[in-house]
Design a protein around this nucleic acid. Sequence first.
DNA 1: CGCAAATTTGAACGTAGTCAACAAGTGTGG
DNA 2: CCACACTTGTTGACTACGTTCAAATTTGCG
Lengths: 245, 245
Amino acid sequence: MSASCFADVLSELIELTSGERSALDQLEERQRHVRRGAVLQRENEAGGELFILRKGVMMSYVLLDDGSRQILRFHFPGDMLGVSSAIYREATETLAALSDCVVCPFDRAVLSRIMVEHPRLAAMILVYSQIERVALTDRLAALGRTSAKARVAALLLELRNRLRATDKCIANVFPLGLTQEEIGDATGLTAVHVNRMLRQLEEDGLIAREAGKVSLLDERALARAANYVNRYEGLDLDWLPRATG
Amino acid sequence: MSASCFADVLSELIELTSGERSALDQLEERQRHVRRGAVLQRENEAGGELFILRKGVMMSYVLLDDGSRQILRFHFPGDMLGVSSAIYREATETLAALSDCVVCPFDRAVLSRIMVEHPRLAAMILVYSQIERVALTDRLAALGRTSAKARVAALLLELRNRLRATDKCIANVFPLGLTQEEIGDATGLTAVHVNRMLRQLEEDGLIAREAGKVSLLDERALARAANYVNRYEGLDLDWLPRATG
DNA sequence: CGCAAATTTGAACGTAGTCAACAAGTGTGG
DNA sequence: CCACACTTGTTGACTACGTTCAAATTTGCG
């Protein structure tokens, strides 16, 4: 296991040089523990700090002025957090821990330095921000144009795939780790309706549930129902800059 | 007026050096005209070409397999298009012209070269991709958690602000340039319901309409109703790398 | 064990979708 | 210049998906 979680993630796509690895190590020199439920960064507050998530699952969300919440994204180990907030005077979203987490905070200046010294890493950071962008547009299309059942199905598939990226043991059964209210806030539904949709997916034989764990019984049918595409696949990065030292 | 549209956009945020300017000029050496309604890049097709939009308004959208469409974003002069599709073997979204347009196609290799030679431009490209990300999350929250009326209001405000960025003359009256069906596909509504919402906004005294033009009569109230934030403001870019040559 | 949070279910309601018909533009070719 | 087709906008009646409210039940935790 490498010193840097983020380096591990990048290694899935490209072969890192030792120079690049040691540059990335700078991102994870410090560690901070974040308890389940704790907030790491709050919307509309200054800060501008960036983080690498090393352990646990987090989420980013925004609150609307009627009090409702929209969960924007779930974050898993190896993700870089706070990039969008770092370019604004005030954070654009709240970062909160869904489980006990370990994060490595680092300064914007460090990111800046890495981009100067390692152009290929700069390119990879752009690539990751684009993957995230595409995942967001998938969700936009889901909220705008698909049924409640499809949105819940898509969320389950996405969760399982992202969990599997860090824990290869995970197959078709995985711990949900979210309340139905949180699923609702991510999919634009109410907790009550999420409950009904989970029940329907169960009755349709697509999933099973017990003790907080979900089983994907018919992944193919689920993906079809959900219009789901795994955006960490199908990449073409041959055109990236050459590696530096 | 500079040789590069994209450089003009960047100049709003930072002072470009002559070296940076001439690097950016490489992006706009060739020109291609795109007729209203024409498709520049189609979802799921290979291509991987990038573009700077020089003139006109375009949109990116995805089609779902029930035939419905979700418009992801509207593009205005100075926008870089196709970045997300460039990192995949196949395009993730369709690019189509809403008016007669002029685009400057360029290769991924050129982008790569610029990122190596001008780290600050690499950083700015990342910044723009993050601004776009935040704009997308705003829309995600709008689709997930706000009313039909609020979504239409937000779209009108966004359109006006982005049009004004290129044409300073535009104040509170602007040409809509979209059919109600397109507004619906962007906001996750049906054309019929968009029509009703426009009428309601008109009855509420928030907007007026005539001959394809919209007037924002009470911008403050509209922004409040829509939860709208202009994401091209409030940036903090002091931490970016130093300029090169 | 006891409490609070989360899940589950039912019933009534409302927002937005669907279907249909018509009006108003818009462009084309005769 | 007009006839025609086609797209876009407008309105009404009906439908349905998802919300709201309420209450019961289960789960998890201190």
